[in-house]
């Protein structure tokens, strides 16, 4: 497929983008909502990577987290519930010159959009996907989500939810073609930023589950983890996240984990307590679907005409001479 003409244009002048060049409006999330921390990390990433705002697209579904694109001064697509990933795939297929990001919640991704999630991993198209996982439906006012812990009392499970929580990391790591899986928590912004940054730099489907607090509906759910740093396990590696000395003093529960090791990554993924934080898996060798489907032809009028005429020829009955 031909790339957009602009892809070939030279940047004739250098333009420095500051943080405010990526900020749009005042987020309407609750005070203390983990989404604010994610927004801050992502805006910092855009600034540090100097992403051109017009070449950057944030695509979301429906839910609290899916408001995200409205707060970015880039292009944005706030779509329908569960379908952010296929929309993002279409954008990516049409335009390889755009930076594609996806914001999706635990209901959006793991419930109504679960089919798309599984297949998006398999397509491995180059995009960065943030799973904002607060383990509850927030926008619709407190219903259990697939990632809610068993026994959670919500408006749809007043006597406690019945099922074990789904583990998004094990699901993701179980799908063929998985190429980048990481986990972050909103209350350690330094690591959140490092992980977001590593995800952006990975070429392929970069999936980050961000464990995120919901102060409105589940204000105390993560209290034990917040108060006890031992219940967070930092994954560090020369090819992964490096932990600063200051952070290492607080979070002493650490594991040296090589992101190429998928077997260990799967074991780590199934661990709920302590919460693993860092890069679980990375494989830059997995081909991207958009590359597999790329043709080298520039779609000139002549090229299309020739192709079409050749097809007409196959079915043509010529008049007798």
């Amino acid at each position: 497929m031909a790339t957009a003409a602009s892809h070939c244009l030279l940047r004739l002048y250098e333009e420095r983008h500051e943080l405010e060049d990526y900020q749009s409006g005042v987020p309407r999330w609750c005070t203390g909502c983990g989404d604010n921390a994610i927004l801050a990390a992502v805006q910092r990433l855009c600034r540090d990577e100097q992403l051109r705002p017009e070449k950057t697209v944030f695509i979301s579904g429906i839910g609290c987290s899916s408001r995200f694109p409205h707060y970015m001064k880039t292009y944005g697509f706030h779509g329908i519930h569960g379908r952010a990933l296929p929309v993002a795939e279409g954008v990516r297929m049409a335009r390889k010159d755009l930076h594609v990001f996806v914001n999706t919640g635990d209901g959006d991704c793991c419930s109504i959009g679960a089919a798309h999630w599984v297949h998006a991993i398999r397509y491995n198209m180059n995009m960065t996907v943030f799973l904002h996982d607060n383990q509850i439906y927030g926008l619709t006012k407190m219903q259990a989500s697939p990632t809610s812990p068993r026994g959670l009392r919500s408006n749809t499970t007043p006597r406690g939810s019945f099922l074990e929580a789904m583990q998004p990391l094990t699901v993701t790591l179980g799908v063929q073609n998985v190429s980048f899986v990481a986990q972050a928590v909103d209350w350690i912004p330094e690591l959140l930023y490092d992980i977001v940054s590593a995800a952006y730099r990975h070429r392929g489907f970069s999936f980050i589950r961000i464990v995120q607090r919901c102060p409105e509906w589940l204000p105390s759910l993560f209290e034990p983890w917040l108060h006890d740093p031992e219940r967070v396990r930092l994954l560090h590696h020369e090819d992964g996240i490096q932990v600063s000395p200051a952070l290492a003093r607080v979070y002493r529960n650490q594991e040296h984990h090589n992101p190429v090791d998928i077997d260990r990554a799967r074991e780590i993924a199934s661990c709920i307590d302590p919460i693993p934080v860092g890069i679980l898996y990375r494989n830059p060798q997995v081909p991207c679907y958009e590359d597999l489907r790329a043709t080298d032809h520039l779609r000139t009028t002549e090229f299309i005409k020739n192709g079409l005429e050749a097809e007409f020829d196959k079915f043509t009955v010529w008049p007798s001479a």
Binding site: A4, V57, I59, F77, G79, I80, R83, P86, V87, A88, E89, G90, V91, R92, M93, A94, R95, L98, H116
Partner: peptide
């Protein structure tokens, strides 16, 4: 949705 994404992108 894929078609809409590609259309949106031009």
């Amino acid at each position: 949705a894929f078609a809409i994404g590609a259309s949106y992108a031009g």
